[in-house]
Simulated scan of single mutants.
Amino acid sequence: MSLPLIPPMLATSGALPPTAQDARWAYETKQDGQRVVAYLAGDGSVVLRARSGEVATVAYPELLPLGRALGPTPAVLDGEVLALDEQGRADFQLLQSRMGLVQSPGRAARRAAEVPVHLVLFDVMHLGGRPLVSLPYTRRRILLEELDLNGPHWSTPAALVGHGEQALLATRENGLEGLVCKRLDSVYEPGVRSRAWIKIRNMLSEDVVVGGWLPGKGRLTGLPGAVLVGQRTRGRLRYVGGVGTGWSESERERLAALLRTAESDVCPFDPVPPVTGAHWVLPRLVGEVRYSTRTRAGLLRQPSWLRLRPDLAPEDSAANLPDELT
């Protein structure tokens, strides 16, 4: 049958609901993967659409049997495609080697053997010819769990009602990306970033040395659009990424003045990073940044600036980096 196109509902960044309202919310683990909506037509086929609307089915051939999981019952399901590391945690860098293969079925099949993916399902928006988006989360969740969608490459993880503080602590203790809080009475809002769903990302922080910057554009012309940062390891300053967010306007202007006084013709990073248009500075400014995780090469993912650390010397920014960077 013909199924309606349903763009995924999006969560808003925020904090845990107030303790007094805790029992009105469900808590699901936030996974670091690719959001997809799965369309099961009831004829054995499945179509996976990314958040952009692009069809991503070819990239994940191991998920094709999902099309037969409900027999003749058509359904539209919401979920996240993950690639898992040796500890069973989602690794976005691993997944990136799969995401770009939407036009290459042969390469996708070969990569599937090397880096298999797993689809976690957390909502159902259409089932058996019936739209479910107007039903509350609790009812949709019951219908989803009744489908018993647990297979070799897909599963339906449990949601926890109440106990938000304990759920968030568990994600931190297990090195997971974070938590998604979903109001029990919330309807499914296609394509809407809603306050009925709140995402909380567990972030780490470390001290870094500023070794360069990239010019800003538009209203940031003349100011740093991003700073290039590194950390000391084995006597060398190794590049760990660019940070372009986290400043107020006055903080960015102050940073620009500090960078101008530290200008240098010599790149302080070893090796020199492949960054076009960089302005190098003497590596004497230390800052604290927040980030979600590191890539396998040691680069910071989703970094944002927290503050300058004038109380620290550049030598204090030592870090335990992966072997690729030491």
Rank of each mutant, 00 (worst) to 15 (best):
R195A: 15
R193C: 14
R141T: 03
G244E: 01
A159E: 14
R236K: 14
S248G: 07
L321F: 05
D85N: 09
I6F: 02
P17W: 10
M125S: 09
L10A: 15
L135Y: 10
R172H: 08
P310E: 06
Y39M: 04
V124E: 00
G241N: 02
Q302W: 14
K30I: 00
D91L: 06
A313C: 06
K30A: 07
L119G: 01
S205N: 09
A226Y: 04
P72K: 08
L40T: 03
P4H: 15
L16C: 05
E251L: 07
H126W: 13
K30V: 02
Q21Y: 03
H118F: 15
D85F: 09
S205T: 10
V240K: 04
A108E: 04
K217E: 01
A226D: 01
E86D: 15
P303K: 02
E206N: 09
R68G: 12
W305L: 09
G129V: 03
H126L: 05
E28T: 09
L282D: 13
V240R: 12
L306Q: 12
V124C: 09
A318T: 11
V275H: 12
P72T: 04
L3M: 09
V81L: 06
V272N: 08
G79A: 09
L40N: 03
R193N: 11
G106T: 14
P268L: 13
Q34K: 01
L5Y: 14
L144D: 00
G79P: 06
G53M: 11
L285F: 12
E263G: 01
G175Y: 02
S264D: 15
L169I: 11
T276S: 14
C181T: 09
L255G: 01
G100L: 12
G244H: 01
H153M: 08
T19C: 10
F269E: 11
S264Q: 07
V115D: 01
L132K: 12
G212D: 06
V124N: 02
G100W: 09
A69E: 02
V210Q: 02
Q302Y: 15
E80S: 04
L149F: 14
Q31P: 00
L149Q: 01
A318V: 11
L48D: 01
R107G: 12
L48F: 15
E173V: 06
S155V: 05
P273F: 02
T233G: 10
L204G: 00
S134N: 11
F122M: 02
R195W: 15
V227W: 08
G53H: 06
R140G: 02
H153N: 15
L169E: 13
L16H: 08
L179W: 10
S104T: 11
A83R: 00
D323T: 07
T261F: 08
T276K: 15
L169M: 14
W197H: 11
A318C: 04
S248Y: 08
T276A: 13
L179Q: 05
L223C: 08
T221Y: 05
V120R: 13
R238G: 05
R254C: 07
C267W: 14
G14A: 04
L5Q: 04
L94P: 01
D207P: 05
E249I: 12
V180H: 04
G225L: 01
